[in-house]
C-alpha cells in the first residue's frame, strides 16, 4: 500500500504514474483554460505547487487534530474546502503585502486555485491513503509537480499548434483535448514502472 512505500516511490507515483491531470483527470478546467500561454502556465504551475503543499499540510492537520478526535469525519468535505478557500484568501493578502515580486508572478492565479479540484483531491487522497504527515507532504509535492510539469509541457506544444494547419472545427479546445489524450497515452507507459 502507498502508506508503506518509501518517500521516493510516493513522490514518483503521484508525479508520473498517477499523474493528476492525465491519469486522474483532475484540475482540467484550469489546465485547458490557461495552457494557451506558456508564461501564464509557468505562473499557474508554480502557484499550484505552493498552494497544494501548504493546503494539504493544513487540511491534514485539521483532519487529524480537529475532525478525528471529535468524531466529525462527516464534516471532511465542508471543512477541507473552507480550509483551502480561506487559506488561499489569507495567503493572497500576505503575499501582496510582504512579497510583491511573488505576487506579481502568480498572484492573479491564486483566486482561481480555490476551485481547482486538484488541490482538494490531493487533500482527500492523502487522507484516503492514510498517509503520515511527511508522506502526505511528499505526496502533495508529487501531485503538484506533476501538474506543473504537464501544464508547462502542454503549453509549449499548444504554442506550436497555433501555427499548424488544423481543420477549422478542431481548432482551439478540441485539438487541445486530443493532444492531451496523446500525452496521456505516453504517460500510461509509466504504469507498472514499479511495484507498490
Amino acid at each position: 500500500m502507498l502508506n508503506e512505500a518509501n518517500l521516493g516511490l510516493i513522490f514518483l507515483s503521484a508525479f508520473l504514474v498517477n499523474n493528476i491531470l492525465l491519469i486522474r483527470f483532475l484540475g482540467l478546467c484550469s489546465f485547458i483554460g490557461i495552457s494557451t500561454n506558456l508564461k501564464s502556465s509557468v505562473g499557474m504551475g508554480a502557484a499550484v505547487v505552493f498552494v497544494t503543499v501548504m493546503a494539504c499540510s493544513i487540511s491534514w492537520a485539521v483532519y487529524r487534530y480537529l475532525l478525528l478526535p471529535f468524531r466529525l469525519e462527516y464534516l471532511r468535505t465542508a471543512a477541507f474546502i473552507l480550509t483551502i478557500a480561506s487559506f488561499v484568501q489569507f495567503e493572497e493578502i500576505i503575499i501582496r503585502k510582504k512579497v510583491p515580486a511573488m505576487y506579481k508572478a502568480f498572484g492573479i492565479y491564486l483566486p482561481l486555485i480555490t476551485t481547482n479540484c486538484a488541490i482538494l483531491a490531493s487533500a482527500f487522497l492523502g487522507i484516503d491513503y492514510k498517509l503520515s504527515f511527511i508522506q502526505n507532504l511528499v505526496f502533495a509535492l508529487g501531485i503538484s509537480a506533476g501538474y506543473c510539469l504537464i501544464i508547462v509541457l502542454f503549453a509549449s506544444i499548444r504554442e506550436r499548434i497555433d501555427s499548424a494547419p488544423i481543420p477549422v472545427n478542431f481548432r482551439g479546445v478540441p485539438i487541445a483535448f486530443i493532444l492531451t489524450g496523446l500525452m496521456s497515452l505516453a504517460l500510461m507507459g509509466f504504469k507498472g514502472l514499479f511495484k507498490l
Partner: peptide, 9 residues
Amino acid sequence: VTSAGYGGP
C-alpha cells in the same frame, strides 16, 4: 492479503 499488481496494490 495484499499483493503488488501492475497498477498498484
